[in-house]
């Protein structure tokens, strides 16, 4: 079994390999570290409201208190419980990123497979549109889209989706092209299977690994992007608890209360670091080359 160096070549064999790969992944401390960080963030994103000790927007005490039993991380500049806000500060950004990126990957996969497998004129047209979209700097594209779609948290979902679709098309197309040259796809073609059947049975199952990686990496990058947008006044606005906004607020008191900045920055940073360690480790273990990623 160990001599199968390209598991992706044999989808049925790959399924069996999954658990050894997982074992391989779990033997690396960096991967485990990443997995733990991601697990904590997922847990907080789902159960945050139940973990919070106070309403995130309620004024519960004097401003800028130091940590105590009542307020585990003290209070913020207007007397809201900082712990509750920190715990819930990633939910909106993660939610927006998750739905936005999922939408982007859905569209990106459809168009990427079409471009990569059908090829020809269709491929040419799709890829030129991709080139054009990707030559507009992300932030300017987002700016134009917020102009068109309005400045609202829910409007951020299509914005994120539109911004991340093009990179996804590229990655999926490249992977589809390399898959379609492999023997098992050729064999299916010789068997006379329809294009749809080949896409559904042979190509798509082999894209799941890369899709998982894309989802994780793009979500973490979208969270960063959203924090920059909030900083510029285009993203999430007050009084929603949001790490990007909290970091920005905390910047105002950084000289006297640096811990105030440290907490949300650490939360943001640990999410990004966690996702990247996890993805690196898992893709190594599952044999996805990092040069395939967009």
């Amino acid at each position: 079994m160990a001599d199968i160096s390209h598991p992706s070549a044999f989808p049925s064999a790959m399924r069996k390999l999954k658990s050894p790969a997982l074992r391989r992944a779990l033997s690396e401390p960096a991967t485990v570290f990443g997995l733990v960080l991601v697990a904590i963030h997922l847990f907080l994103a789902v159960f945050g409201p139940w973990i919070a000790t106070h309403d995130t927007s309620a004024l519960v005490g004097d401003p800028m208190q130091i940590p105590s039993w009542d307020f585990l991380m003290g209070t913020d500049q207007i007397g809201r419980d900082y712990f509750s806000r920190i715990i819930n500060g990633g939910r909106i950004a993660l939610m927006v990123s998750f739905f936005g990126v999922s939408l982007a990957l859905f569209v990106g996969t459809a168009l990427g497979i079409t471009a990569g497998y059908i090829g020809g004129r269709v491929d040419e047209i799709i890829m030129r549109i991709v080139d054009a979209m990707m030559s507009i700097p992300e932030l300017i594209l987002i700016a134009i889209l917020t102009l068109a779609l309005g400045k609202d948290v829910l409007a951020l979902i299509p914005v994120i989706a539109i911004v991340y679709t093009w990179g996804a098309i590229r990655v999926i197309r490249a992977k589809t092209i390399s898959l379609s040259m492999l023997d098992f796809v050729r064999a299916a073609e010789l068997r006379g299977e329809s294009r749809w059947a080949i896409i559904a049975r042979e190509i798509f199952p082999n894209l799941t690994g890369i899709l998982g990686v894309e989802l994780a990496v793009r979500i973490s990058s979208a969270v960063l992007r959203i924090s920059a947008l909030s900083f510029l006044g285009l993203g999430i606005s007050q009084p929603t608890p949001d790490w990007g906004l909290m970091v920005q607020e905390a910047m105002g008191v950084v000289f006297t209360d640096p811990w105030f900045l440290l907490l949300p920055a650490l939360m943001l940073s640990s999410l990004i670091v966690g996702v990247n360690f996890m993805v690196d480790g898992l893709s190594r273990a599952f044999g996805i080359s990092s040069s395939e990623l967009g």
Binding site: R128, A132, M133, L141, I144, L147, A148, G150, A155
Partner: peptide
């Protein structure tokens, strides 16, 4: 060609969508 497409996208984003999206926004 790419730049022309880009200007089309910018045009669509800035001039067409707001009109169509008036009620949606």
């Amino acid at each position: 060609a790419i730049l022309s497409l880009t200007s089309l996208i910018v045009f669509l984003g800035t001039e067409v969508l707001p009109g169509d999206a008036i009620t949606a926004t």
